[in-house]
Simulated assay, not measured.
Amino acid sequence: MTLEKNNSSMLVFDGTIEDMKNQLPSFSMDGHNYFIDPDNIISAIDAINDEEIKDVDNIANALGFNVSDLGFAKVYHGCRKGLKLAFYKCNERILILSFGEFQSGRFICYFEGFVR
């Protein structure tokens, strides 16, 4: 697994979850277009069991994100308060995201890099 960290967090979406489902967030990078379906975002906890990702602790560490160990579970924080580390499989790449409900009803998604 190789981690390609983006130079800075890139805002991909900021709005309601309904808006996100009606108009899939997208961005372009390196000549490729990426569309993110919120129904297929993989949480960091689920990614631990994914054969293509699984090294979530090292990814969070490399990005400088905090990980809270609650004893019975870990919380993988994203780049901003209220956001969580997440992943999305797209165009044979795995996108690293910070995603979540930033404020009540307001969802934010940042692109952080790739796992290859």
Rank of each mutant, 00 (worst) to 15 (best):
I94C: 09
F87D: 10
E101C: 07
I48Q: 00
K54W: 02
D19V: 01
L63W: 04
N91M: 04
S28I: 14
F27G: 12
I96V: 13
N58Y: 02
N91Y: 04
L63M: 14
N40A: 05
P25D: 13
S104V: 10
E51S: 11
F102G: 04
S43V: 12
I96G: 12
R93P: 09
L95G: 12
L95N: 14
L97C: 02
I41M: 06
F35K: 09
G78C: 12
G15C: 15
D55G: 00
I96A: 15
D46S: 12
H32Y: 09
G31P: 06
F87S: 10
N33C: 09
F65S: 07
N40W: 05
D14E: 12
A62E: 12
K81A: 13
T16F: 01
L83G: 09
G71V: 12
R93M: 12
D50L: 02
V12Q: 14
A62Q: 13
G31D: 02
S26A: 14
P38R: 00
F72H: 15
V67D: 13
L70C: 08
L97S: 03
V12D: 14
I45G: 11
L70N: 09
A44M: 08
L97T: 01
D39E: 08
G64K: 14
K89L: 15
F102K: 12
N49Y: 01
I94T: 15
I96C: 15
Q23Y: 04
V56E: 08
I48D: 00
